[in-house]
């Protein structure tokens, strides 16, 4: 378990989830949509990573709509795009903004990058 060295207790609902994730350079990554726990034999489950993924947000929007959301977004996800996983060791602080000690992981949201290159970037004035 990697969090605060002095044993601070905090709850993910308020301190972790839905927080804006910002990388070392101040760039927006996204909001924390979900959290990954690892359960090893003989130990309590431990939080190991933050997940940024619009589809998994559906699981937290309860009920039918949430399931619908999850299914649709999973289907719409391009094959090379995986939910962004930020290991907890990269996190410097959780609140008010989740700041990372590293840069954004490469290959995040390839669809957005593709759009920047081929669509938005192609329109005159797009890169300035």
């Amino acid at each position: 378990m990697s969090d605060e060295a002095d044993g601070t207790i905090f709850r993910i609902g308020f301190t972790v989830l839905d927080r804006q994730v910002v990388d070392r350079g101040g760039e927006n990554l996204g909001k924390v949509d979900d959290v990954e726990f690892t359960w090893r034999e003989g130990e309590a489950p431990a939080m190991t990573a933050l997940i940024i993924d619009a589809a998994s947000l559906g699981g937290r929007i309860a009920g039918r709509f949430g399931r619908f959301w999850e299914t649709v977004l999973e289907r719409m996800r391009p094959p090379e795009e995986a939910p962004t996983r930020i290991p907890l060791t990269d996190v410097e602080e959780f609140a008010p903004t989740t700041v990372l000690s590293t840069d954004a992981p490469p290959g995040m949201r390839p669809l957005e990058a593709w759009m920047a290159r081929h669509l938005i970037g192609r329109i005159p004035g797009g890169r300035r």
Binding site: N28, I52, E112, R127
Partner: peptide, 21 residues
């Protein structure tokens, strides 16, 4: 802002593609 994407008119559009989309 709901999804935490890059946003802003002051950014070059290619840096905030979803926002401009």
């Amino acid at each position: 802002q709901y999804f935490g994407w890059h946003w802003g008119k002051t950014l070059p559009p290619a840096s905030a593609p979803y926002f401009h989309l």
